[in-house]
């Protein structure tokens, strides 16, 4: 059970981060005038959350128990990397995309 939990930790973090940034974006586009509102501050907030999330991914990768090698090690590790890669790739538009 623990092994499974570690396995899905990375992707689960991606899911939370993706949902959070998407929600922030939604709030930005509805209540405010989009990421450029508050003098571009909103985009900064979103990017901040994203970067903090990437930090959390890295921390997760480092915190993974070394295990006894073999599957006990690779399973959580691949999970961790998949999560980091997914967060980096799917959310990088916070930096470049035009807003609403």
């Amino acid at each position: 059970m623990r092994l499974l939990a570690l396995f899905i930790a990375g992707p689960a973090l991606w899911a939370v981060l993706f949902a959070a940034v998407y929600a922030l974006h939604g709030i930005g586009c509805a209540g405010l005038t989009g990421p450029e509102s508050l003098g571009g501050l909103w985009r900064l907030v979103m990017a901040g959350v994203w970067i903090a999330g990437l930090g959390a991914h890295v921390a997760l990768l480092r915190a993974l128990p070394a295990g006894r090698g073999g599957a006990d090690r690779w399973l959580p590790l691949t999970g961790g990397w998949i999560g980091l890669g997914a967060s980096a790739f799917t959310l990088f538009p916070v930096l470049i995309a035009t807003s609403c």
């Binding site: 993706f18 998407y22 990421p35 997914a86 799917t90 959310l91 538009p93 807003s99």
Partner: peptide, 15 residues
């Protein structure tokens, strides 16, 4: 859909 959201989901679809 707002542009940035389009970019998120497009990126995920490629990934």
């Amino acid at each position: 859909i707002p542009h940035m959201a389009l970019a998120f989901f497009s990126a995920a679809s490629v990934l």
